[in-house]
Design a protein around this nucleic acid. Structure first.
Length: 269
DNA sequence: ATGACGGATCTAATCCGA
């Protein structure tokens, strides 16, 4: 057990079928044990499992639907207890969990795609924002402590909670993804479930770090108007085993990129 | 700097993302 390493990555891929080529490249270059994808935008039987099989990711937990949303967790190690929760009873595909049989023991992995919430930050006028807030409310029930095994929660949570999680705190205070009702809500989810923010455990809060840049910006790299929408959380004990967090900014500049980049956490035991 | 983009869908214009 000594000197074992476990690597887990999360990536909102914005269509796994369109971007299977860069997914393969990422897996070859970085070799995570587990990859959690969001916005796969396909049904379960359209998921490109063969491409993952060829790279050794023979285990998968896929929860997709036609055209929109959808999450998938692929793994080199067996996945058990695969299940999804229908948050807010919408019948959409925004969560899949599993128990990974890692080299160092069982690990619960939750893969989330929280609703974006549309433009207007008012739950009365905007049903999608209402949906987002209700989704957060229900996430508060999710604890990081399940029968003593460690837990990891990752995904596109569509909220940038801290000042340096956005390019301008002042300019984005009324913009959906950084409004106080959302950032308070996300902090409540973290507190009530006893989750640790591993990106911020590794990168100090006074340092800007982003995982998403809009497609609409002319020069995303120069303008750098990003947000940290993607997250890696864990239960307290395994947080002490974190040895590295990598935010693969360069992936935003790849051919036909997703608007999100991969984030990978490395644990040492 | 709420958009100038980009995805999926009964391929054409519509919905969606954040």
């Amino acid at each position: 057990m000594a000197n074992s390493t476990f690597k887990l990555a999360t990536w909102n891929i914005n269509s796994v079928r369109l971007r299977i080529g860069i997914v393969e490249q990422f897996l070859k270059d970085h070799e995570p044990d587990v990859l959690c994808l969001q916005e796969i935008k396909c049904q379960n039987d359209q998921f490109p499992q063969k491409a993952f099989d060829a790279l050794g990711y023979t285990y998968s937990a896929v929860h997709g639907q036609k055209g929109y949303h959808g999450v998938a967790t692929v793994s080199k190690q067996p996945l058990n207890e695969i299940a999804s929760t229908d948050y807010v009873g919408m019948g959409d595909t925004r969560h899949v969990k599993c128990l990974v049989d890692t080299k160092v023991g069982p690990l619960h992995v939750h893969n989330f795609y929280v609703p974006a919430g549309s433009d207007e930050a008012d739950p009365v006028k905007n049903p999608k924002f209402d949906h987002k807030l209700k989704f957060l409310d229900e996430m508060k029930e999710l604890t990081s402590d399940i029968d003593g095994a460690p837990s990891i929660l990752v995904g596109d949570l569509n909220i940038a909670p801290l000042e340096n999680d956005v390019w301008s705190h002042k300019k984005l205070l009324k913009v959906v993804s950084h409004t106080p009702i959302e950032t308070d809500g996300l902090n409540d989810v973290m507190r009530s479930g006893d989750w640790r923010d591993l990106i911020r455990k590794h990168i100090p809060e006074d340092e800007k770090i982003f995982t998403w840049w809009s497609y609409r910006a002319k020069d995303w790299d120069a303008a750098d108007k990003g947000r940290r929408l993607d997250h890696v959380w864990s239960s307290p004990k395994i947080a002490d085993n974190l040895s590295d967090i990598m935010v693969l900014r360069e992936a935003r500049g790849w051919e036909k990129p997703s608007d999100h980049v991969p984030v990978m956490a490395t644990f040492k035991f």
